[in-house]
Amino acid sequence: MSLESPESNEETLTHNVEFELNGSPERHCVPTSATVLDLLRNSCGKQGVRASCERSVCGACTVLVDDLPVAACSTFAFDVDGARVETVEGLAAQDGTLSAQQQAFRECGGFQCGFCTSGMLMLTTALLRQNPQPEREQIREWVSSNTCRCTGYEMILESVERAAELAGAKQQDQVSE
């Protein structure tokens, strides 16, 4: 925000937050009431992190904190002090090459309006780190923590399966190299 609110004349408690964002160090002074969503969207310019219900229900704002998916809207910024935070902006390689998850969601049509997509991709990233070859049932369970209003989910489930396949193939390539 470009101007200070009148309440900032009163003492607004602030806090320094240092964390790693998509592999790079970040340091911001934020109000203690700031959420990770505020921090990432407003202070770090990560607009790929979407705000929707802001009640920790829909999962549109899902980001990874130390590999675990969390609702950025309902996590205090000070909670990520010292943590490793990942957003959708960190998935593709520097040269723009899409990650396995991104490729899979593209290929399988795992998105429509795109508003849930960042969250779904981060959820997929976390799942595949925990289990590189998840069964359909586990995928359903994980995807059920986020809301998509457009697709009817089947194409998202297929996207996650395809992401596992692509990530597996990539790893095989690396091994055989």
Binding site: G48, L91, L98, G109, G114, F115
Partner: peptide, 15 residues
């Protein structure tokens, strides 16, 4: 894939 797929999977889509 749809032509808007890349901007949507990279978070660059603007609403």
């Amino acid at each position: 894939p749809r032509l808007d797929s890349t901007m949507k999977v990279t978070g660059r889509a603007v609403y």
